[in-house]
């Protein structure tokens, strides 16, 4: 009898055990190990020489100039990518919201970069942004406009990386917003027309609140994604010139062999920043988001 009850109690845990094992192994263990490493002056060649140093790694992080440089780069990059992508994808989605053959074609075109590897995209843009022979400066020159040094100047390098990221990501978000816009019942717009609402007011008071869940989703997802940017930086600039495009994840990557403990500590800091940001978003904005 007791044996049977024990079986009843244990069965659900047994059922979820494989999945839990996966989560422990591939999610929790790495996170815990990251925290463990961050407290050590870890020696990769000889584990015995590793030394527990408490929060010294963190103290070092917050005293180093290059960390603040990469942090401010990351914040600037994230702000640029999130704001530009949200604005542009909203604009495009409103334009593409009406169903027509031409719009479907344009939408497919905008979405295409999303299915191409970011490495290929970064490479192509790298060539296009070459200051002397690149396509972008050629076009600018042809129209008599001032050219740019693009990735080769510390002034414009980060902006150039932002440009590529926005170009690559926008199609996906346009798709989400177009779907959201098309799901709004047309009779609501008709009611607004009968209520004598202007186009701008209709957009502000009806369209935006109606797609606010999707906008909020994009905001959160993109902020997290942008804070973790790596591949574009790795391929296009390698953090340069003069650390102008060095972002947090690339900073961690640079320190991976020389000082894994320090790199891990930076990883923990990054995790904390993203968690904090997401928390703040939910606190500040979730009341403005309308869920059906």
């Amino acid at each position: 009898m007791d044996k049977q009850r024990l079986g009843e109690t244990l069965r659900p845990y047994l059922m979820i055990a494989p999945a839990m094992a996966g989560i422990f192994l591939f999610v929790l263990y790495p996170v815990v190990f990251l925290g463990y490493l961050s407290l050590y002056d870890y020696n990769l060649m000889n584990k015995a020489k590793s030394k527990f140093i408490g929060f010294d790694n963190f103290a070092e992080i917050f005293s180093r100039e290059d960390f603040y440089k990469s942090l401010s780069n990351t914040v600037f990059y994230t702000a640029g990518v999130v704001i530009l992508t949200l604005l542009l994808s909203l604009l495009l989605a409103v334009w593409l919201g009406k169903k027509s053959k031409f719009n479907v074609f344009v939408q497919a075109g905008i979405f295409t970069p999303h299915v191409v590897s970011i490495v290929s995209i970064a490479l192509v843009w790298l060539w296009m942004m070459e200051p002397n022979l690149g396509f972008l400066n050629y076009v600018l020159k042809a129209f008599g406009l001032p050219t740019s040094e693009w990735l080769q100047s510390s002034k414009s390098a980060l902006m150039s990386v932002i440009l590529v990221s926005v170009w690559q990501g926008i199609g996906y978000y346009v798709l989400i917003l177009v779907a959201a816009l098309q799901s709004i019942s047309p009779s609501i717009y008709e009611a607004a027309a009968l209520d004598n609402a202007s186009k701008l007011r209709t957009f502000w008071k009806i369209t935006l609140p109606m797609i606010s869940p999707q906008l909020f989703f994009i905001l959160v997802i993109m902020t997290i994604g942008s804070f973790k940017v790596f591949d574009t930086v790795k391929v296009m600039t390698g953090g340069g010139p003069n650390n102008a495009t060095n972002t947090l994840v690339y900073y961690i990557y640079e320190n991976r062999t020389t000082n894994i403990g320090y790199a891990s500590a930076t990883g923990v800091v990054l995790m904390a920043i993203i968690a904090l940001l997401t928390f703040v978003y939910f606190r500040l904005l979730s009341r403005k988001v309308h869920y059906q």
Binding site: S187, A191, L194, K205, H290, Q292
Partner: peptide
């Protein structure tokens, strides 16, 4: 100067 009541009411759900 007309007002309309719709079949699905068309109430603004966010307001």
């Amino acid at each position: 100067g007309v007002a309309m009541v719709f079949q699905n009411y068309a109430i603004y759900p966010t307001m």
